[in-house]
């Protein structure tokens, strides 16, 4: 695993330490099964507004499943999840309300290949938030400029590189002006040079105070930006701590084993 070029001495930037007391996401005693398989066990997690959380762990630990439960791409069978004060149940109205406020970026970008970049970004604001087309296009160009690819607006996703596609995916989510952003291994499908451009975008987002939950293997990013690092294994949260404490003094043996393997080489 290649580490991106972040100095291992850089602690979290003090200007990023600001976290409010307002609860953005509250997960209480959440359990999920796939058939007989108990994939998430007794998850208790509170995310405050402005917090940036990195979730790491071995494959199959349930990290992606956890964040997918937050915007109801997966259903939980037990426990409660409350996002922005709205409880996540099978009520479609609640789900739609929550999905408007929670943006998500996927490992495989999931851009719409039959639409141009601009249309990808304006689709949801026009059809979900009912914003007029002109205004939606201005917002889209603003966010495309922010992720540094305004000139690609009229191309199709198939004509862009992986890093550009992922940045478009981030811009597309931002166009809905969400209050929480979820990232499901956003850089895992990218080669090293493109990882940096995507991580830079995410760091900028963090500096503006966005609440972020990020499943990633990029430990340098975690050290630079995260308020909390959560380690999951076999469906439960094994350890969570501030990044420096987490990397320097892991408490659980399982965490120590994991860190030794990913930071070792």
């Amino acid at each position: 695993m290649t580490e991106t070029a972040f100095s291992s001495e850089s602690a979290v930037d003090p200007s990023l330490m600001k976290v409010s007391n307002e609860v953005a996401i509250q997960i209480s005693n959440m359990n999920k099964w796939y058939g007989e398989f108990h994939v998430l066990r007794n998850i208790d997690l509170t995310v405050y507004r402005g917090e940036r959380i990195v979730i790491c762990g071995p494959s199959g630990s349930g990290k992606s499943t956890l964040i997918r439960c937050i915007n109801r791409l997966e259903e939980h069978q037990q426990g409660t999840i409350t996002v922005d004060g709205t409880e996540l149940t099978s009520d479609l109205k609640n789900i739609d309300t929550i999905r408007k406020e929670v943006g998500m970026c996927f490992q495989h970008f999931n851009l719409f290949p039959h639409l141009t970049i601009l249309e990808n970004c304006t689709l949801a604001p026009i059809w979900v938030r009912k914003i007029p087309r002109k205004e939606a296009e201005e917002t889209a160009m603003h966010f495309l400029a922010k992720v540094k690819i305004p000139d690609q607006a009229h191309k199709y996703p198939g004509q862009l590189s992986g890093g550009q596609q992922q940045r478009v995916a981030i811009a597309r989510s931002l166009c809905m002006k969400p209050r929480i952003m979820l990232f499901d291994e956003p850089t895992s499908a990218l080669d090293p040079e493109m990882i940096k451009e995507v991580l830079d975008t995410m760091i900028e987002l963090a500096q503006e105070g966005m609440t972020m939950l990020c499943v990633t293997h990029e430990m340098g990013f975690a050290r630079q930006v995260a308020n909390r690092v959560i380690f999951m294994d076999q469906g439960q949260i094994v350890e969570q701590n501030e990044p420096e404490e987490f990397f320097r003094n892991p408490k659980s043996d399982r965490t120590k084993l994991f860190l030794s393997q990913i930071l070792g080489h």
Binding site: R99, V102, G103, F106, N110, L123, A124, V128
Partner: peptide
């Protein structure tokens, strides 16, 4: 790919809109 359904869902599009668009 199922990612298309998921992306449409995560943007808040309801069933008929995600089908149509």
């Amino acid at each position: 790919p199922s990612g298309q359904y998921e992306a449409a869902d995560s943007l808040g599009l309801d069933y008929w809109k995600s089908m149509r668009l």
